[in-house]
């Protein structure tokens, strides 16, 4: 039995996409339920996803300290991360990007056009590219572009949540296969993206779904473990380091405790 590295990685289970229920009457209560359920299913870290479509101006983060405190209290054992997803359909939004981004742990982009996909993959300072799984993609995902993104440290996200509602399943499976093909199985993060409690699945079942869709089982296991963690650490480095190179303390993505890392390059 291998010790150290493997054991640590086996114990990490990330769900990087739990949509923030901004439409719900009591968003905090609804999010709490999702967190408790995910904890019960065996996840150790969860990212709450705040989705912004359209203009960024005047948008503020719903994750205030009070809200985060309240959420953390219901699931003490789970690391809660703040994630922002920008739905990009034109290039003009990029100006006000930097100011809001600093309030989040993870930044993702959902490109709607070929052009925004191009800039997300090659230029923008982001952690995740999230492709809308509920509809046919308006662009063809090229292998060269996807690999450029992955080698730059940007990961692709596959959400399984939409595969559990009858009509969405076909597109979800087809998009998942497209992403697996384009990236050749590298740099894939699996998350739920589920809008209702019944659409969350346990880590083991989620890994199996990804395997059935054609990813190697080792890469599928990493998709909620190591690769997801890398995306989270990437985000932490953006928020808390100088030029992503020097950092005084970095919080462990799992426990939130600061670990003594003085230099990350």
């Amino acid at each position: 039995m291998q010790l150290g590295k493997n054991n640590l990685y086996l114990s990490m289970r990330y769900d990087l996409n739990v949509p923030w229920p901004s439409q719900a009457a009591q968003p905090v209560k609804t999010a709490q339920k999702a967190l408790v359920l995910l904890h019960e299913l065996g996840y150790t870290a969860v990212a709450l996803n705040f989705i912004v479509a359209g203009k960024l101006k005047g948008v503020s983060s719903p994750f205030t300290d009070d809200v985060m405190h309240e959420l953390q209290r219901s699931v003490p054992g789970v690391r809660i991360l703040k994630r922002l997803t920008l739905v990009l359909d034109e290039q003009t939004q990029n100006q006000s990007f930097a100011s809001i981004v600093s309030q989040f742990d993870i930044v993702a982009v959902q490109p709607q056009t070929e052009k925004t996909l191009q800039s997300a993959a090659t230029a923008l300072d982001i952690d995740l590219i999230s492709i809308d799984m509920t509809a046919r993609t308006p662009f063809y995902l090229r292998h060269k572009l996807a690999c450029a993104a992955v080698s730059r440290g940007v990961r692709f996200e596959i959400c399984y949540g939409s595969s559990l509602d009858g009509e969405g399943r076909r597109y979800t499976v087809s998009n998942a296969i497209a992403i697996i093909r384009a990236t050749r199985g590298r740099g894939i993060v699996l998350s739920s993206g589920a809008h209702q409690l019944a659409n969350f699945r346990s880590p083991f079942d989620a890994i199996n779904l990804l395997t059935v869709w054609g990813l190697k089982s080792s890469a599928a296991r990493d998709a909620i473990g190591v690769t997801a963690r890398q995306a989270a650490v990437n985000g932490l480095l953006r928020a808390k380091s100088a030029k992503q190179a020097v950092i005084a303390t970095v919080e462990d993505a799992e426990s939130g405790r600061p670990t003594k890392v003085l230099r990350v390059a």
Partner: peptide, 18 residues
């Protein structure tokens, strides 16, 4: 995978966990 796709048993929403 088929069991994961189950969302309802006997008109009650359900999660099948292996």
């Amino acid at each position: 995978a088929s069991l994961s796709y189950i969302t309802e048993i006997d008109n009650q929403r359900v999660i099948v966990k292996i």
